[in-house]
Amino acid sequence: MSSEYSSSLRRKIDEVVARYPKKGAALLPVLHLVQREVGCISPEEERFVAQVLGLKPMKVREVVTFYTMFLRRPVGKYYLQACSNLSCSLLGAGPLLDYLQQKLGIGIGETTADGRFTLSTVECLGACEQAPCLMVNFDYHGQLDREKIDRILESLE
């Protein structure tokens, strides 16, 4: 329940809310903060955020389901998002995605049994000059090939 959220989270939320002339406008940044602490936005987090910002839980759900970065279920410790847009595809993103799936033994949208990795695809990450690229949590990795993918995954294990 909401009493379980840390006081540092509550403090950060107050700081963020103060930047906006209307409380509800802080919804996206507050969801980012909560997701960072909890790992995802489940119905319980939706209720907490709604209560803090004085919104109906349904309003929060509407927003959570619209934006792809808000996760409704937990993901693995490392969330790999491979760009599948044009500039990356031109430079081999497709075969690299196959390689990742094979190497991790999971499909797109799945998590490894040990809970370490979740794989998904993403539209252009705004790093096309480094194509093909991949985001691991919030870290960008570019100019990927098989060896580089091996190295990145090893560094995470």
Binding site: A25, A26, L28, L31, V63, Y67, T68, M69, F70, E123
Partner: peptide, 23 residues
């Protein structure tokens, strides 16, 4: 103000909605 993964929010009026805490 950070967005959350939606290309349409680059469109100026969608950006305003998003800044107001909406879809």
């Amino acid at each position: 103000h950070r967005g959350a993964g939606a290309y349409i929010c680059g469109e100026e009026t969608a950006l305003l909605e998003s800044l107001e805490g909406k879809r």
